[in-house]
Simulated assay, not measured.
Amino acid sequence: MALETTLILFKPDAVSKGLVGTVLNRFEKEGFKIRGMKMLYLSDELLADHYSHIADKPFFPSVRDFMQESPVVALALEGEDVIARVRDLLGPTDSKAAAAGTIRGDFGDKEGDAKMRNVCHASDGVEAAAAEIKRFFKEGEVF
């Protein structure tokens, strides 16, 4: 097992539904440690960088609009194999396909865009986590 740090973004649906504390509690019950946490509005530039792999797609404006509906909460979370374990806790990206007991299965959108309104973004690998943490946290904000 490897000690890792991952980035979690509590998306606007999690913030507006008051789910940040509930979901954070699930992460802490798994033994993960908070290394950094802050609330912020996402600029067009930050979103274009974070979603550079889809920024040229016709659906990107709807992603940008959703991610700017409210502030998000960025979380740097540390633990043994935290990247894979968090993704297991979240369940599949599509909340409609997520099993009960997973975060997305319990709290994700089942009616609308279940792939976008799915409570949290989580890094998908060690390199992505390092880049994403650097993107959302300044020097000295991760402890």
Rank of each mutant, 00 (worst) to 15 (best):
M1H: 09
E4Q: 05
T5V: 05
T5K: 10
L7E: 00
K11N: 02
P12H: 10
D13Q: 09
V15I: 15
K17E: 10
K17Q: 11
G21I: 12
T22Y: 05
T22C: 01
V23S: 04
E28R: 02
E28V: 01
G31Q: 08
F32R: 03
K33W: 00
I34S: 00
G36Q: 05
G36M: 05
M37N: 14
L40E: 14
Y41D: 15
Y41C: 11
L42R: 04
D44W: 01
E45L: 15
E45F: 09
A48E: 11
D49F: 15
D49S: 09
H50Y: 00
S52D: 07
K57D: 13
K57L: 03
F59P: 14
F60A: 03
F60K: 04
D65R: 10
M67I: 09
E69W: 13
P71L: 04
P71E: 15
V73N: 12
A74T: 05
L77W: 04
E78H: 07
D81A: 03
V82S: 04
I83K: 02
R85N: 15
L90G: 00
G91K: 11
G91I: 01
G91S: 11
P92M: 08
P92A: 12
P92C: 05
T93H: 13
D94H: 04
D94A: 10
A98C: 06
A98I: 00
A100I: 05
R104I: 07
R104E: 06
G105V: 06
D106L: 14
D113N: 10
D113I: 03
A114T: 13
R117G: 01
N118S: 10
A122K: 03
A122Y: 06
S123C: 09
G125D: 15
G125M: 10
A128K: 12
A128Q: 04
E132T: 00
E139H: 13
G140S: 12
G140C: 06
V142W: 06
F143G: 13
